[in-house]
């Protein structure tokens, strides 16, 4: 383990302790009406995660998230490499992507519902549109910022275009592309969950939405905890990998 990763791990542990303390304190202030204590939540979560009902919803969400992430990565990288390689294309399309990035995509859910219907495809689409743009934007910048002299060196050595991408552009642009993937991961996850909340009748997002509707505090707390732990673990791992990539370059 390199020192940077060790530090990240220590910081994460500190943060977890801080959050737990704040959570418990908030619980004492707010009380049972709207909150459960960390221990109560953990107990409920342990019970809930062993039910077949949870397994089914989890499988549904995993499938949707996996598909959405795959699509976001493939489409995002393709757009990124294409636009990054051409000054003109990126001049034309990049501002459009930036504008798309900035719109509140949550308002688009009725359109997606009308276009894809209630179910898997509309929540995958919702996840993908959230994740694809940051991946594309980061890749464009990363590819564009590859030092000219590397490319020239590749030309001098007579690399084929494919070799040029695989052996020069990708390795040189990797840290920044990875940063895009990291953000794309988070946004695809939240996009998929929002899709499930508004445009689905299965999955953890749907479960959360119905828990909100029924004011089932136990379930709300448990789902939020599980989703946060998953997102947090993944983010910290990706962040550690990213720091390692940056340290190398």
């Amino acid at each position: 383990m390199n020192p940077q990763t060790g530090q990240l791990l220590r910081n994460t542990l500190t943060l977890i302790v801080v959050v737990l303390v704040a959570w418990q304190a908030l619980y004492w202030v707010v009380g049972d009406v709207a909150l459960r204590s960390p221990l109560q939540t953990l107990a409920f979560a342990a019970k809930f995660t062993s039910t077949p009902q949870f397994a089914a919803h989890l499988a549904e969400t995993s499938k949707a998230f996996g598909l959405a992430l795959l699509l976001a990565v493939v489409i995002g990288l393709s757009i990124g490499f294409t636009l990054g390689a051409s000054r003109f294309l990126s001049d034309v399309f990049e501002p459009m992507l930036v504008a798309l990035y900035s719109i509140p995509k949550i308002t688009l859910y009725p359109i997606l519902l009308l276009a894809f219907g209630l179910g898997m495809s509309s929540k995958v689409a919702f996840g993908t549109i959230h994740g694809v743009i940051p991946i594309a934007l980061f890749t464009i910048t990363a590819v564009r910022n590859v030092k000219r002299v590397y490319i020239k060196t590749g030309h001098v050595m007579g690399l084929t275009p494919l070799d040029m991408i695989a052996r020069i552009i990708v390795p040189a642009a990797l840290p920044e592309i990875f940063a895009g993937l990291r953000i794309g991961f988070s946004l695809t996850l939240i996009g998929t969950l929002l899709g499930e909340m508004f445009a689905s009748q299965r999955g953890l997002g749907f479960l959360l939405m119905s828990a909100i509707g029924l004011h089932n505090v136990d379930l709300i707390m448990t789902l939020t905890l599980l989703l946060t732990v998953f997102a947090g673990t993944a983010s910290v791992v990706l962040l550690a990998l990213n720091q390692r990539l940056y340290a190398r370059s």
Partner: peptide, 18 residues
């Protein structure tokens, strides 16, 4: 730092009822 990296994957709307 880890919170910032995770923040936008957390479904903040879950806190709405509270």
């Amino acid at each position: 730092e880890p919170l910032f990296a995770t923040y936008y994957a957390i479904p903040v709307f879950a806190f709405y009822p509270m």
